[in-house]
Simulated scan of single mutants.
Amino acid sequence: MADLQHDLSRTAAADGFDDLAEPYPDEGVITAESYEPVSDPDDAPLTRAHAILAAHPVADGCNALPWALRRLSYYDLELGESTVDTDVPRLRGGHVGALFWSLQLPEGLDGDRAVGATLEQLDRAKTVARTCDEGLRLTATAGQVADARNCGRVAVLLGPAGAPALGDSLGILRQLHLLGLRALTLTGVSWASEAGLTRFGEEVVREMNRLGVIADLSGASAQTLRRALSLSRAPVLCGRSAARAIRPHPVNLSDDLLAELGAAKGLCLVPLSAEQTGPTVRDVADHLDHIRAVAGAECVGLSGTYDSGSAHPQELQDTSCYPRLIAELLRRGWEESDVALLTWGNVQRLLRSADFTARAAQQRREPSTATISELDG
């Protein structure tokens, strides 16, 4: 139980971690200093957008394609599927290089039913990827994402799943990770509530760090978000949050939380959702402008929310439409280096940081055997 008292705060980076070699070299990771502009003689914004995206594709933080396909008896994603927002031709047309597949659950599920439904979602996602192996590739690490892109495939990362998928068990968390789960949303459970993280919730975050599962804090309370920021050694993610100062949606973030997220090197992925960002592509660009100004260029990314049931802004109806958004940002004077961070570089940094943190933590910490009854009972 001594492990439970070991606080893996991010500030303790010298606790024996300094002698560990970074497993992922800096090559291939985009920073504002290392970015080389795409050479393109045509200054038309849409043409420039396609050129930039060809070099630095979109890493989409939330896509629910497996959930949308559950109602179809037959589909062909390679050829094209008009009944959904996502298929291989449109992914390629939109220059999408990676997707997080959200493992959505029906409302109100908890306990064993939530665990079972999540396993079914994982099975469905793997089946979809297997039947579309010419266009998609399941991945679990930053290196595998880069390999998939180099092979002309769209990398698929499984998650986020909802916290009820754990069934309040760290053992189930480990098994979900073995099945490929890469991100977990910390909402909808007793140990991550409006009051913040309980002792068991803190232990979940530590175990996620040890495994390399990314904490998604969209929809979490301010108390939960702040405690996770201070506790997690790996950067956290807000996978579908925009700026509350522009549009007061409950999942959007206030400026003070955005600033704290940026200071902690976390990532806010702005959803292409009319409800959260507004009805036009210009509204989405307003949120991206605002978050970049408040939290920094290394804190902002994109979350399509395609096939999740959300209505999308005009001109952004499906996954082929990302160049239109990038063109709007270029018209507003965004530097190409910031666009490259927005679309690809920031998510790659997040994945690499999570992988490195896991490798380091596994040298210090055994799998936790804590239970919710021990810590919160």
Rank of each mutant, 00 (worst) to 15 (best):
V154H: 02
P235A: 09
S337E: 14
A370S: 14
D256M: 03
A295R: 14
R174W: 05
L231N: 04
A370C: 07
Q121D: 12
C62P: 00
H177S: 05
D112H: 11
A163S: 15
V205E: 01
N150F: 09
G180W: 07
G162P: 06
T280K: 01
L136H: 08
D3T: 09
N346V: 06
D7E: 08
V270N: 03
Q223S: 09
S254K: 10
Q223A: 10
D7K: 14
R124W: 10
D133P: 06
R233F: 02
R10G: 10
Q314A: 15
Q121N: 09
V204A: 07
R113I: 00
Y75S: 15
G266C: 09
A64R: 03
C151W: 10
S241M: 07
G333E: 04
E120H: 15
S320C: 01
D318E: 00
L325M: 05
A311Y: 01
L4Y: 15
I372Y: 09
L138W: 13
R113N: 07
L257G: 01
D26G: 14
E336K: 08
E203D: 04
S254N: 05
D18S: 13
C238M: 13
D110M: 09
D15R: 15
A129Y: 10
F356P: 00
P323A: 03
E36G: 09
L351Q: 03
